[in-house]
Write a protein that binds this DNA or RNA. Structure first.
Lengths: 158, 158
DNA sequence: CCCTATTATCTCGCCCGACGAGATACTTGT
DNA sequence: ACAAGTATCTCGTCGGGCGAGATAATAGGG
């Protein structure tokens, strides 16, 4: 076992402190989403779905029911139930595919976007303000670290 | 509306890019935990419980069933079921409280710690290696940003 | 020291999100 | 036009989490 590995597991080195900090951030962001969910009578999966839909929308892509379910790791039955819930709550609407009429495109209602902005806006503003206090090199470090961790977490297996 | 706010909502400014990056990191860390869960036949809640138990253990604290449930937002029935599952799978053991015999202390089995290290170790090593490439000022920026976001996400409401 | 109030956990019955299997509707290739 | 393939939906079931209440142990007033 190398010296570094011993330090990782045994002592709170300066790097490990940041690793735990990042985990804490992930946990708190999760809690923050959960509060949004509970406040609007949604389930965690519903929030994940809305976020996925808005991400796709921002990238200019249409999201079908199947693609949404796949992104969330649900099977077709669960996907139908999910879209049913979101539609019943007025957060999305089903639109039959124009070219391929088997498909169902799920579109986010403006009302849901507004609710999301209302809840996550202050936190985003706060983060942006924080970032405005750093210079280019510091921003590059933050960006580089986050990118590295994201890619490592995403690609590590399978 | 100020110039900054227009940029936040409308355009992908340099700050918003990092904000989305942070969210992506949170999502990927969640997926990574989910893979660990599925691989060992656990539910997301079980993983959260193990992490909470190990955090407490690292801080030298004994965790009772009640405290564990409160940390996860479960009621007593759910907590009992959770500890039942973890105990049946051999990840924890129940120990009757020494001083107060009503309490049940939940202790993590070494086997579970080893499984966790096996799964999360490589990712942690990768993050530590990344961090070793930055100087003090860059590390301070990363630490400062993460701390700020964590506190904002945790304290924003209620 | 006993009796009541309080605390910690567990048991029981229910709800509902997610799954597997299969039905239905539409499209594509021959 | 027909068979094979694809996208979504329906039905029955499983299981995590909840509310209500039972049980066991501690703490406090008389």
């Amino acid at each position: 076992m190398s010296r570094e590995q011993i330090e990782e597991s045994a002592g709170p080195g300066p790097e490990m402190e940041i690793v735990h900090l990042l985990r804490a951030v992930a946990v708190e962001l999760g809690r923050h989403s959960a509060r949004f969910a509970q406040r609007h009578g949604l389930h965690p999966t519903d929030v994940r779905a809305l976020i996925a839909l808005m991400d796709a929308s921002r990238a200019g892509e249409k999201t079908t029911a199947g693609r949404l379910g796949a992104a969330l790791g649900l099977n077709s039955a669960g996907t139908t139930a999910l879209v049913d819930r979101l539609e019943r709550a007025g957060h999305v609407r089903r639109v039959r595919g124009a070219g391929d009429r088997r498909k169902v495109v799920v579109e986010v209602e403006q009302r849901a976007v507004a609710l999301g902005r209302e809840h996550f806006g202050p936190l985003i503003d706060h983060a942006v303000t924080l970032l405005q206090g750093y210079d280019e090199r510091e921003l590059a470090a933050i960006r580089g670290f986050l990118t590295g961790v994201r890619d490592a977490a995403a690609g590590e297996d399978e």
